[in-house]
Each structure stands twice: as C-alpha cells, then as structure tokens.
Computed example of a mutant assay.
Amino acid sequence: MLTILTDALLAALLLAALMVIRAFALARSRGSVPCRLKVGPSTGPRGWRSGVARYADGELHWIPFIGVLFRPRHAIARRGLTVSARRQIGGGLWAVDCGAVSLAMSEDALTGFLAWLESAPPSAYLDVA
C-alpha cells in the first residue's frame, strides 16, 4: 500500500516538474511574449488564460502555460484583424479586443503587437482570386 502511494506521489511530482519546465521554456523562448487570452464575451477577471504569444507567418500563435504540447491552441490571422477596444486592466496589463478574442499583455508587448498589425504589407489585405 505504501509503495503505491509513493509511486503515485512520485509520478505527480514528476508531472508537475515537467509542466513547470515546459512553462519556463515557453516563457523564455525567443520571439515569444507572456500574454493572456479570453475568448467570448465574458466580463471581469474570470476567463483569462495565461500563456505566451508568438508571431509566425502572418499569424499570432497563442500557447497556454498549462498543457503538454508546444502547439498553439489559437492561431489568430493578421489578415482582417482589427482592434476594436483597448483598455488598461490593472497589474500593468493592457487588454485589446479583437472581435471574439481579447488579449492582455504588458505595455511593451502591446506596442509590439500594434506595430506587427500595422506593418503588414499593403497586399496582405487584398483577396486575390
């Protein structure tokens, strides 16, 4: 009985350590910024999920801190993306509403995000058939 409990505790500690290492690797990886994401119309502090955002091939990839895979959970295309609202939400974070998705990030990360949106080539918004 004691070995089963010890094995289960050891497995839980190993899983927790791997998740902490994954979160640290995501946060420290080149080209990524800490970013919170909220999908849907929920209001208030609830609904925000912590993760990192990376810019890749005209998309913003959001990867959650809690998880196993390094794949993005959300890919937000730059084409047609508009910021409908921007507000400070406390703790040094700024939130931007982009349709059904809201992103919260530091002021420096927000400046980079807005520059990324504005730096799209003019032809990026043309639908060429």
Results as ranks from 00 to 15, higher is better:
Arg73Ser: 14
Arg71Cys: 10
Leu9Asp: 01
Pro122Phe: 08
Val33Met: 08
Val68Glu: 03
Ala27Lys: 13
Arg87Gln: 14
Val128Trp: 14
Ser123His: 14
Leu14Ser: 11
Asp97Asn: 09
Ile4Lys: 01
Phe24His: 12
Ile4Arg: 03
Pro45Glu: 08
Pro45Phe: 08
Thr111Leu: 08
Ser106Thr: 15
Arg54Glu: 13
Arg87Thr: 12
Val39Glu: 13
Gly44Pro: 11
Asp127Tyr: 13
Val101Phe: 01
Leu37Ala: 13
Leu126Phe: 06
Val128Ile: 15
Leu126Gln: 08
Leu93Ser: 05
Ala12Tyr: 01
Asp127Asn: 11
Leu37Phe: 03
Thr111Gly: 05
Arg36Tyr: 07
Ala8Asn: 05
Ala109Glu: 03
Glu59Val: 04
Phe70Glu: 02
Asp7Trp: 00
Tyr125Phe: 10
Arg46Cys: 02
Ser50His: 07
Leu114Asp: 05
Trp48Glu: 12
Tyr125Ser: 15
Ser119Arg: 11
Ala11Gly: 06
Leu26Ser: 11
Trp62Lys: 03
Val83Trp: 06
Leu26Met: 12
Cys98Leu: 11
Arg87Lys: 08
Gly51Tyr: 03
Leu15Ile: 07
Ala8Thr: 02
Leu15Cys: 09
Ala115Gly: 03
Ser106His: 04
Pro41Phe: 09
Arg87Glu: 15
Arg71Thr: 12
Ala129Arg: 14
Gly91Val: 06
Met1His: 04
Leu81Asp: 04
Arg28Val: 03
Arg22Ala: 05
Thr43Lys: 14
